[in-house]
Design a protein around this nucleic acid. Structure first.
Length: 211
DNA sequence: CGGCCGATCCACT
DNA sequence: GTGGATCGGCCGA
């Protein structure tokens, strides 16, 4: 079942970030379908969040899309190299976002291997925000795209994530954010169920777990 | 208009 | 464990 806009327009960005775990993200460009199970997200809580690009109600050409009604993409370039994908949430004027940090591939794996020049069997295939964007062919030009359309969308396949299986930690790479750098706004499912990961993330997803 | 630097990744030691 | 890649956005002058 495809997720509709009402999933994104709710007011709790942390709740949405947690509910995204276990959902399936798909992209289809030039007839090539790729997709994976979302296993890690981060919430960015708008104008009060020092880690957010929209902190203090800042509006620039880049961040303007964050003020849209929920259900569109915000993709920006990081370190001059990586295209980082965000779900825009909440209502128009409230610039909440969820960064997608990791997926577990389930669809179009050969295409993803070609795009990333890496093999799925190798550890660390799509376990990072830059890498998964490359695998799904998401680029900055997709900023503003409708997340309920036919190029990028989400589906609920009935994967049930227990509350107790969600690990939360501080967000990665936001040391500049002062007190807000310690907020537990990073959410992930530790598929191995072994231990809380250190910063840097879970690198031990079992390829066959969801198949 | 110039300079700084990041919501990262990978090669190399 | 560390440093280089790489460039658009952002800010101050």
């Amino acid at each position: 079942m495809k997720l509709d806009q009402s999933f994104y327009t709710r007011s709790s960005v942390t709740q949405i970030a947690k509910e995204l775990l276990g959902k399936i993200i798909y992209t289809q460009f030039d007839g090539i379908l790729t997709g994976g199970i979302i296993t890690e997200t981060e919430a960015y809580e708008g104008i009060t969040d020092r880690a957010s690009h929209a902190y203090n109600n800042r509006r620039t050409d880049r961040t303007e899309i964050m003020y849209s009604n929920g259900g569109v993409a915000y993709v920006y370039l990081c370190y001059g190299v990586h295209h980082l994908f965000n779900f825009i949430t909440n209502h128009k004027g409230i610039p909440h976002a969820v960064l997608l940090r990791s997926i577990h591939p389930i669809e179009g794996i050969p295409a993803m291997e070609e795009r990333t020049a890496k093999k799925f069997s190798k550890k660390g295939f799509t376990d990072g925000p830059g890498k998964l964007s490359k695998a799904l062919s998401i680029k900055t030009l997709h900023t503003g795209i409708d997340l309920t359309g036919n190029k990028i969308w989400l589906e609920d396949h009935g994967i049930s994530i227990q509350h107790g299986d969600i690990i939360s930690t501080p967000r990665i790479g936001v040391d500049y954010a002062g007190e807000d750098a310690t907020l537990p706004y990073r959410f992930l499912i530790d598929i191995m169920g072994i231990k809380k990961p250190r910063q840097g993330g879970v690198r031990s997803l079992k390829p066959d777990l969801f198949t």
